[in-house]
Design a protein around this nucleic acid. Structure first.
Lengths: 361, 361
DNA sequence: CTGAAAGCGCTAACAG
DNA sequence: CTGTTAGCGCTTTCAG
């Protein structure tokens, strides 16, 4: 450090402002351009971010507030966002709010507002989103990722969780399952609400009554999956399939399944919202809803960058991405077994050919 | 934003410099202290980090350059470091250098130096560590985590990888294994070198000749574990045990194991450097070397903070932490089986009681 | 203990 | 297109 724009000006016999202008993409005489470039290289000059930020009130820093758990979900999002932002010349300031704890989130948002970032991407739950408004008032754009709240008009990037849950549970139904349990997430989470809604809708569409005994209130953490699964297995009439509302829940389910010695998929089929990078280690391989993580990161970054550049044309924007179901080996195809819906027999035991049930009643 | 120290000065009828002094822990008349506090609260004033940084050349930002892969190793370190630094009032600027790619690391270090951080924690491999010197010259303390290079005198926090590998492989030997394969990391990595050294030492100490056919050159990535395992299984004389040099290598090994239908531990015992948070999902549960991640993060942060405060008393400091072996179910105890080393029979098939071989010849 | 003043490195009018 | 100039908000001498 130590070499400033002043030194470059002296070296080139140009005015400070000319250098500054050039540095910021302004037009300069061709000859001067070369002179400046040379001087910069020679002196090994780099602009001082602080001074720049102080003056222009642009910091080139963006905040990212999200959980950072040991799963592909967290690490992929973080990695992708960091990468994109750096490419665009922004620093990423990372703050971990664990499981989206609202109080932490609020503290961090205020922290970032006070300390000056150009924008932020956050994941959060809960309804009290005053802190989002505070950021807005400080003119700092915020993009909410994953958990989009209807309570606040904000830009957000979310996944069609309802659709994803619907599809993967429809897969169970088409495979002949009726006693389908769900271990859900907490009610403060929009994604959890949506996933549950997906469950309820598909059950309704196929005319399968929802058994409250099969609806477990979880909290997206593995313990709730573990306990939930144990509970389910004590029902007089056990479910033949279970839907785990997220990655961690599924981990817990698997743990219980191993402990209880349940055979998957023979005794129990499992589907999960969130895909496993480690799917290779898990037997049987799980049928799961895979979220478009890269696209989410992409979309959030692009949107935030546009806002930071003052482009608010389409504000507030709600981007909804489609997840993808990946069919693997954790679902037993019971086609051919008796069914109230009168579905015909399966010809083959593949995913595609098992869709014998007509939708609706 | 918008409210500055000037406003506080006006509100209190004090000089700007007095406010500043108070804010920085200087002494002020008791009465004034209260007045200032009140004004700050009333105006909701918060210091502008940029201006502060520009003037004092302290940024309260620290950089963290490390890979961010989907495993407990990465996510735990990141989480712990972020947490500690925030508690101490520092922002964490995170940069992902994937698998410690030296060129990326260099770019990022320079980037941080240019943009002003108070210090940084990095993980990196390779010998060319000029960029560390550059940071030093810019008076920015650097703590290297994990990969400590003898090539440069720097503060570092590392794990006794040699010892960890030694211990877990000794466990194999005591269980009666002789044909022990190792899938190693790349030669640019100090930790990989150490782990290999642990293997070689324990083999030497127990007088077991090293079979070059069982030494696989990997690169800490899962594919090298996968390919390595497949290769090993084609040897005319197959190994009875394999040591995976890190988490990802082990993932690859498991993948191959599943694909080849190898029974663990009956046909092959597996031990791994790095523990699995998901161990619960992996059958059998793996015997592994568990690194003290929290302590690493702790130590790195404490050391860096001391350096940032100008305390260089014990520079350069090399902190070496001890890992812990966790014995689970992936090792077959073959005690009682024929052995060239004349070890006696096992009484029980537990870890503790199986150590029948006398150390050394 | 308090206040006045200088200036950190840079950008953005504005005048030439 | 280039140069002059006035600060951004704060810390830090140095007098008072």
């Amino acid at each position: 450090m130590g070499v400033t724009i002043k030194d470059v000006a002296r070296e080139t016999n140009l005015a400070i402002s000319t250098i500054s202008k050039y540095l910021n993409g302004g037009k300069v005489r061709k000859k001067n351009q070369k002179v400046i470039e040379d001087a910069i290289r020679k002196l090994n000059y780099t602009p001082n971010g602080m001074a720049r930020g102080l003056r222009s009130s642009r910091t080139y820093r963006v905040g990212l507030i999200m959980g950072n758990n040991t799963n592909a979900h967290s690490s992929t999002l973080l990695k992708e966002i960091e990468n994109r932002m750096r490419e665009r010349g922004y620093f990423l300031i990372f703050l971990n709010n664990d499981y989206c704890v609202p109080r932490q989130t609020e503290e961090y948002v205020d922290f970032l507002v006070e300390n000056g970032v150009d924008g932020m991407i956050i994941t959060t739950i809960g309804k009290d989103l005053d802190y989002i408004r505070r950021a807005r008032e400080a003119d700092i754009p915020v993009v909410i990722m994953e958990e989009c709240h209807t309570a606040v008009d904000t830009d957000c990037v979310q996944v069609d969780c309802t659709g994803g849950a619907y599809e993967v549970i429809e897969h169970l139904i088409k495979a002949g399952h009726r006693r389908i349990a769900a271990i859900n997430g907490m009610d403060e989470s929009q994604t959890a609400i949506e996933r549950k809604k997906g469950y309820l809708r598909v059950m309704e569409d196929y005319g399968i009554p929802v058994n409250e005994d099969y609806m477990i209130q979880g909290d997206y953490k593995s313990e709730s999956g573990y306990l939930g699964m144990k509970e389910l297995w004590q029902r007089k009439e056990r479910p033949t399939a279970v839907f785990a509302a997220n990655y961690n829940t599924c981990i817990g389910v698997m743990e219980a399944v191993y402990e209880l010695g349940i055979k998957v998929p023979e005794e129990l089929s499992i589907v999960c919202f969130d895909d496993f990078e480690l799917s290779v280690m898990v037997r049987p391989k799980l049928t799961a809803v895979c979220q478009p993580l890269t696209e989410m990161a992409d979309a959030a970054c692009e949107l935030l960058i546009r806002r930071m550049n003052g482009d608010y044309d389409d504000y507030p924007r709600r981007i909804r991405l489609k997840p993808e179901c990946i069919y693997r080996d954790s679902v037993l195809h019971m086609c051919g077994s008796p069914s109230k819906n009168g579905n015909k027999e399966c010809r083959k035991k593949t995913d595609r050919d098992c869709g014998m049930i007509e939708k609706g009643k």
